[in-house]
């Protein structure tokens, strides 16, 4: 318990101090997206890594958050903070409502159903041109501000996004190490046994689905205010797959794993920029190889690898 708190505090310090030595705005900008992706990956991981329920439609909730905030603030002149809260609640309500029929499905069927939700949402973003601007996107979204203080620079946005991300990380850490988190993992291991233990599996699955949608919607709202421009390509099927990849390579059922996954997969395309378009091949390879050779993800695989190497060395010495 103590070491968990310490770990989180150290992590907070790192997050806080990270932009200080970075002179360029470019890296800070990338780190903003690491923060947003961390929230999204963590939301998915709660559902997939803990409760064992797959979703290939996370981008839909992310997009609904972004477009909700974007449309309300540009077309209807809503206050950004108010619209963020409203949109998050509406998206959560929507997820709760579709959660009951969707999460009655298992495995492949669940994957397909969530994928269907994602595709339909993506089509809607493209087709409702009057509201969303369609394929050419929605621009002129205002920055967030508190009083006269506007989050109009990369550095300010970095601290804004990461405050949210850290809050989500803290809440997730609390959740997974509690009665609730244990019940989720129990559902993952054996749904029948969990139900026989009095765990209301059906309701809890819908609740955690709703929570992950809520987190994604908030991430979406932040994204639109940071970017000030959004278009449907940021919320398609590929994004859902990218989030899945983050969770899998970081480590299913590990909070910090999701952060690691988000970091790696956000940096990777930046590093591969010279080899444009290779990223899709790399994602594919990563997904296949990780699932076969490192099913526990990086956070578990790398320490295990080290453990195997270290005793070997001390044995030789």
């Amino acid at each position: 318990m103590k070491s968990d708190k310490l770990k989180f505090l150290v992590f907070c310090l790192v997050v806080f101090a990270l932009p200080l030595p970075l002179s360029t705005g470019y890296l800070t900008n990338v780190l903003i997206f690491v923060g947003i992706n961390s929230m999204l990956a963590l939301g998915l991981n709660l559902l997939l890594g803990y409760a064992g329920q797959i979703s290939l439609g996370q981008a839909a909730f992310f997009g609904l958050g972004a477009y909700g905030s974007g449309v309300l603030t540009t077309q209807y002149a809503f206050d950004p903070w108010l619209s963020m809260v409203l949109v998050a609640l509406v998206v959560a309500g929507f997820a709760f409502a579709i959660g009951f029929p969707v999460l009655r499905l298992k495995g492949h069927y669940l994957a397909m159903a969530t994928l269907g939700v994602g595709v339909i949402a993506h089509i809607a973003f493209n087709e409702t041109v009057d509201l969303t601007g369609g394929p050419s996107g929605l621009s002129g979204i205002p920055n967030l501000s508190i009083g006269s203080f506007s989050f109009d620079s990369d550095l300010k946005n970095y601290y804004l996004v990461w405050s949210f991300a850290l809050a989500v990380i803290l809440l997730s850490l609390n959740l997974v190490n509690s009665r609730y988190g244990r019940a989720l993992r129990a559902i993952h291991d054996s749904e029948v046994a969990a139900r026989v233990m009095g765990v209301n599996a059906r309701l809890m699955k819908v609740q955690v689905f709703t929570l992950s949608a809520l987190i994604s919607a908030i991430a979406g709202s932040l994204y639109c205010h940071v970017m000030t421009f959004i278009s449907p390509t940021s919320f398609g099927f590929n994004i859902s797959v990218e989030l899945l990849t983050m969770v899998v390579i970081g480590g299913l059922g590990s909070v910090y794993g999701s952060i690691l996954g988000a970091l790696l997969l956000t940096l990777l395309p930046e590093l591969l920029r010279t080899f444009q378009d290779y990223d899709i091949v790399v994602y594919g390879l990563l997904l296949v190889c990780m699932t076969i050779y490192l099913p526990g993800g990086m956070v578990r695989g790398i320490p295990a690898l080290l453990r195997r190497l270290v005793p070997a060395r001390s044995g030789n010495a």
């Binding site: 797959i54 298992k106 797959v241 899945l244 091949v281 790399v282 997904l287």
Partner: peptide, 22 residues
């Protein structure tokens, strides 16, 4: 597990797509 099979076939699908694109 169904989960790992889903992930692996999704991985293979984007891998194939990527290679064809290249």
């Amino acid at each position: 597990t169904p989960l790992s099979l889903i992930i692996i076939t999704i991985g293979a699908s984007i891998l194939i797509r990527g290679v064809v694109m290249l």
